[in-house]
Each structure stands twice: as C-alpha cells, then as structure tokens.
C-alpha cells in the first residue's frame, strides 16, 4: 500500500486541502494510506513512521521546527513533491524575507524563527515541483498522472517541473496584434481598467505577464485582472522584478520619450510607488537584491 505524508510548513493551509479534494488525487489517496498530516489530526513521530512513498510539502521554512521536519521527511520519503508557489519561490509568506525576526515575534518566540524566510527548494532537492497559488485543476490532473507512473516504485531521474514554463504572454487572449509595436502609454492605476479585451500593458497597467510562467490558463487575465506573477519566473527569466524593469524601460512611452526628456519620464515613473511589492509579491526570497540586502545583515 502506498504511504502518503502531507507536510505543511509555514503556509496558509489551503494548497494541500485543495489537493486532497481533487477527485483524481483523492482516488490515489483512497487506494493508499495517509500516514502523516497534523493539520487533519493524523500525527506521529516522523522517526517512527518509517518509509514514506510520497510526501507533499507546502509552505516556506520560517521556523526552526519547519527545517527539522523538512529534513527528516526528505530522508524518509522516496518522492518529495514541492507543492505551491510558497515551497518553490517563497510566495506570500516570503514577503517577510527582509524583516528581522524581532519585527515579527516577541520575547522567547524570536528564538524559534529562522533568521530569514526561505523556500523549501533552498534546503532540499524535491523530485516534483508544482508552482501555483494555488495550482490549477489541470496541473493537479497532471500531478496525478505523474504520480501513477512512480507509485509502484522508482523515482524521477531528474526534477519534474509540472508547468510548461513558457512566458504567459505567448498564448495570452489579450495579446496585441503586433507585439513589436506595443507601447505603454504611461503608468495607470489598475482600478482604471476598461474591459475591452486590449493588452493591459498597452492600456498602461502593469501586468507581470512578460516575466511570469504560464500554467494558470490566464485565469486572472480572462477575468480582467492584470497578472500578479504567482506562477513564478518563466523559463529564461533570472529575476522577475529586474526583468520586468527591463521590459518597462523598453516600452514605456517609447514614442514620446524624446519630447518628455528625463524629467518627464521620471515624473511618469514616480507613479509606480511600490515596485518591490508589485514585482516580488510571490518571489521576494529568491530576488537577487534580497540576497544582497541579507548579505549586508550577515545572513546568508
């Protein structure tokens, strides 16, 4: 009988519940046995559980206990699935990456926290990576298919990344007819969006599509909301924020820049008040500048 473990580190707890509720995954779980899932009352000492076939991990490593549990389960499990954006890029939990533990907790609790928050992939090597906040039904179906292959034994030879990884804009329903001529006419507030099916960037609204991986079927974009980048960087994108700055530099007001000159451009760029919060909502712990800022604090 296949033995499953559900490991929730610091997370909102939604990802794994949703995974459990998915019919295809649920069928697999019914045939097997869940040996560890503290959130649903299935507890036990990881030392005494013995070998586990598949461990689903969601969440980030924020506390010292998270790290202990994570390393134990990597040792005892055959296949580790890093599930959700938090476990791969940091997700929303990762937004505390630059805060000192003292700013988050009081008194003796400070000692329980790691010096910074990091995703699971910074500590262990998962076998299957499933990004998404939360992963969509199609991705779950793909996960069920992949797991069936390895259920009787063996493990993937190299890491399996369960989304295509190409840029979101490639198949976007709002893709402009001539992408090379696309121009951003200024920076506008998202609440000014008119749902006329035009590209958000062409309307002056920042959309992280140019740097984000496809795997969500344009869920937000189809419902008239610009991409927030929850799937993490696309293939070839080094750092979501820095690459996005590069794109904005290329297309913002490109036909009027000679008239506006530097002061005019600066005035327009000042309308973007919080670039860090906007560009790194889901990937702050993986940002190159975070690495630099943490190094100055003596945290590696």
């Amino acid at each position: 009988m296949t033995r499953y473990a559900f490991l929730e580190l610091t997370s909102c707890g939604d990802c794994l519940s949703e995974l459990y509720m998915n019919p295809e995954i649920n069928k697999l779980l019914e045939e097997g046995e869940i040996v560890y899932w503290p959130a649903y009352g299935i507890v036990g000492d990881p030392e005494e559980i013995g070998e586990v076939d598949v461990t689903f991990i969601a969440g980030t490593v924020r506390t010292r206990r998270d790290l202990e549990e994570l390393e134990k389960f990597r040792r005892i499990s055959r296949i580790v699935v890093a599930y959700g954006t938090c476990s791969i890029y940091g997700g929303l939990n990762g937004l505390t990456a630059l805060l000192e533990p003292r700013a988050i907790a009081d008194g003796e609790y400070v000692k329980l926290l790691m010096p910074t928050v990091k995703p699971v992939t910074d500590y262990i090597e998962p076998d299957i990576l499933v990004p998404g906040c939360p992963p969509t039904r199609e991705v779950m179906a793909r996960l069920a298919k992949t797991l069936k292959k390895y259920i009787s034994g063996g493990k993937p030879e190299k890491k399996i990344f369960l989304i295509p990884g190409e840029v979101l804009c490639k198949h976007c329903p709002r893709r402009p007819s001539n992408p090379e001529k696309a121009e951003m006419p200024g920076i506008r507030d998202p609440n000014e969006v008119v749902d006329d099916g035009r590209c958000f960037i062409e309307q002056g609204i920042l959309c992280l599509g140019p740097v984000t991986a496809n795997g969500c079927n344009h869920l937000c974009i189809r419902f008239n909301h610009p991409c927030m980048g929850c799937m993490g960087p696309a293939r070839g994108v080094v750092d979501q924020g820095l690459n996005m700055i590069g794109s904005i530099g290329s297309i913002l007001l490109k036909s009027r820049e000679v008239k506006l000159l530097f002061p005019g451009l600066a005035k327009e760029l000042d309308k973007l008040r919080d670039p860090m919060g906007y560009f790194y909502r889901y990937t702050l712990p993986k940002a190159m500048l975070t690495k630099l800022a943490l190094r100055r604090r003596g945290v590696e």
Binding site: G241, I245, F262, M276, L289
Partner: peptide
C-alpha cells in the same frame, strides 16, 4: 541609436527606487 539613453534612464531610475526599498 537615437533612444538608448532614454531606455537606460528609465531602467536605472526604477532600479534605484527598487534598491531604496531593499535598503541599499
């Protein structure tokens, strides 16, 4: 190349803003 300096200005103006938020 006619507009290269404007591209650079926009990029590094934004990067400076971003660095300020990161405490650099």
């Amino acid at each position: 190349y006619k507009v290269g300096n404007f591209k650079a200005f926009k990029r590094f103006y934004l990067l400076k803003k971003l660095m300020k938020q990161f405490g650099i």
